[in-house]
Design a binder for these strands. Sequence first.
DNA 1: GTAATATAAGACTGGAATAGTCGTATTTAT
DNA 2: ATAAATACGACTATTCCAGTCTTATATTAC
Lengths: 134, 134
Amino acid sequence: MLQLSKKVEYGLIALRHMAMNPRGQVFAAKEIAVKFDISYELLAKVLQKLTKAGVVISTQGMHGGYSLAKKPNELRVSSIISVIEEERPTIAECYAEGGEDCSIFNACTIRKPLGKMQHNLNLLLENTTLEQIV
Amino acid sequence: MLQLSKKVEYGLIALRHMAMNPRGQVFAAKEIAVKFDISYELLAKVLQKLTKAGVVISTQGMHGGYSLAKKPNELRVSSIISVIEEERPTIAECYAEGGEDCSIFNACTIRKPLGKMQHNLNLLLENTTLEQIV
DNA sequence: GTAATATAAGACTGGAATAGTCGTATTTAT
DNA sequence: ATAAATACGACTATTCCAGTCTTATATTAC
Ligand code: SF4
Ligand code: SF4
């Protein structure tokens, strides 16, 4: 309930790890997975999504790995979640894109009021950057 | 992802409905379910939990139903969620009670930093009362 | 006292979402 | 060539959630 997914947590752990070290240093997914005792395959997929989104830079081949593409204070938790989940974090499905398919949509009386909560959640996630996770 | 469950939404809708009407008026679960086009059985179970927690008062038998037990400005969303879900809303399992069973608990480096987010979420949910949902 | 209407409570089911795994291709340093 | 790394998609297992069903109990109306 309201919990971040494991994928997001793993992504944050990896990103934090990179942010703690000198800029530009590359880390292999395997290396991170072992260090933090998380599934290598799962972490790899997360890092691949972060790569596509330009959050990290990947270098393939031997001695390859990932390195942070942005400054920690430019990386908002909200966008990290969006990238990994492939959708914005919402408090109710009707606040997601194309989210009018809630079966109750028309009869719902709390949609509008919940908008304030959604807005505050947005602020919270936008104002929390990777820098603050360090 | 981060979404309120349907049970919580249905609970909020029902509570809001009661809050919109004169204090003490009773509403049958069936009546509310029909009005808002939600599953009667599901709503009934939610209202039963709210009854046990003293959020609403139930009267059994014919012409029975539920009525609000507290003033809308005394009812915080955080506690409504706690009652319906039977656990506090948390951003990660380790923030729930007895939540040390995360497989990564010891290696996790983001637990502490996420504490701030958890705290802010708490504030958000505590500061939102039923009155503001009306 | 019986029928009708309501809550109480818990078991059960189906489907969706999540976590995790596997297989294979590709890239690159040595 | 080989080893070590990313890339990518299919697959599986498990857990969670929404919804249903069943039975029991309480209260009112008649
Ligand atoms: S319309 Fe109402 S019930 Fe449906 S998702 Fe939005 S808030 Fe929840
Ligand atoms: S310990 Fe870390 S990984 Fe485990 S639930 Fe808490 S924050 Fe998430």
